[in-house]
């Protein structure tokens, strides 16, 4: 029990509370997204498997890593954003704001629980998928790196959204008009090389594209672009977004009037 020093116990408790929060409702927060991903898999692989090959692999093997990563990202975002908006609307956010937990510790606790949620959902989809399909795993460390960094990036984005939104419908708008389009137009279902040049260029502005492509590269050993570039883009995006998030938290934007 005393593995955690007293000064770390505050943020550690917040992290544990955030984990329990989604784990208590894991039917919605883990089982449901796993189910959704498997439905996509069933439909798309059934329709396209016999007709399409991407990067020289069959369509299902191409699709699975993309679907896993899409779910990882969406759930990492959902975790921090929904926790914050709920606590704000319910008013119980003050239980944390009254404590000595610093803005940096607050950030790390929410980030870490988003990462765990993303990884748990990703692992769930992976474990169910490999019952049915043989999936290669060429670079396991790249897979882990993209999963962690990607869920951290979306976790930070979720903190921003959760702090900014005052109402649930503003949060829904965030989900529907930013997160969903970015994740669907990121090359989960196709290689961007199959797009016209203009849309290829547009796709390269989408950070989700790099996360999905790099993550997929970890499994298949092939992708649209080099994983080193993807990792740099994702890392830099995470760094930039973290700075914005920390800035918001430090100034108390919408949290401390």
């Amino acid at each position: 029990m005393n593995l955690i020093s007293n000064s770390m116990r505050g943020p550690w408790t917040l992290f544990k509370k955030e984990l329990l929060r989604f784990w208590r409702v894991s039917f919605q927060t883990v089982a449901a997204p796993v189910m959704t991903a498997l439905l996509y898999l069933l439909v798309f692989s059934h329709v396209l498997e016999s007709r399409v090959q991407v990067h020289g692999v069959n369509y299902t093997s191409f699709l699975i890593p993309g679907l896993i990563m899409m779910s990882v990202l969406q759930n990492a975002f959902a975790n921090s954003s929904s926790s914050l908006i709920q606590s704000k609307v319910m008013g119980n956010i003050i239980f944390v704001l009254l404590t000595p937990i610093s803005y940096l510790e607050f950030f790390l606790a929410f980030l870490a629980s988003s990462i765990v949620r993303g990884l748990v959902v990703g692992l769930g989809i992976y474990l169910v998928a490999i019952i049915f399909i043989d999936l290669p795993m060429v670079h396991p460390w790249l897979i882990l790196a993209f999963a962690v960094l990607g869920s951290a990036l979306l976790g930070a984005f979720g903190i921003i959204a959760g702090i900014w939104a005052d109402k649930f419908d503003q949060m829904a708008a965030f989900q529907n008009f930013i997160i969903m389009p970015l994740s669907f137009l990121s090359g989960v279902f196709y290689s961007i090389h199959s797009l016209p040049p203009f849309w290829q260029a547009v796709s390269q502005l989408n950070p989700f594209f790099y996360m999905i492509d790099g993550f997929r590269y970890g499994f298949l050993g092939v992708g649209d672009i080099s994983p080193a570039i993807s990792l740099s883009v994702v890392g830099a995006s995470f760094f930039g977004l973290s700075l914005i998030t920390l800035r918001m938290l430090k100034t108390g934007y919408k949290l401390r009037g």
């Binding site: 029990m1 116990r9 505050g10 208590r24 319910m90 119980n92 003050i94 239980f95 404590t99 000595p100």
Partner: peptide
């Protein structure tokens, strides 16, 4: 400082003892 807010706020995910343990934990108590 301990503060009892005016509004009846609560966290619907947890029970009374859990909330008290979390609250103590935020302040570094185990």
């Amino acid at each position: 400082l301990g503060v009892v807010p005016q509004e009846l706020v609560f966290d619907p995910f947890f029970n009374v003892r859990e909330m008290l343990r979390f609250q103590a934990g935020y302040f570094g108590r185990g």
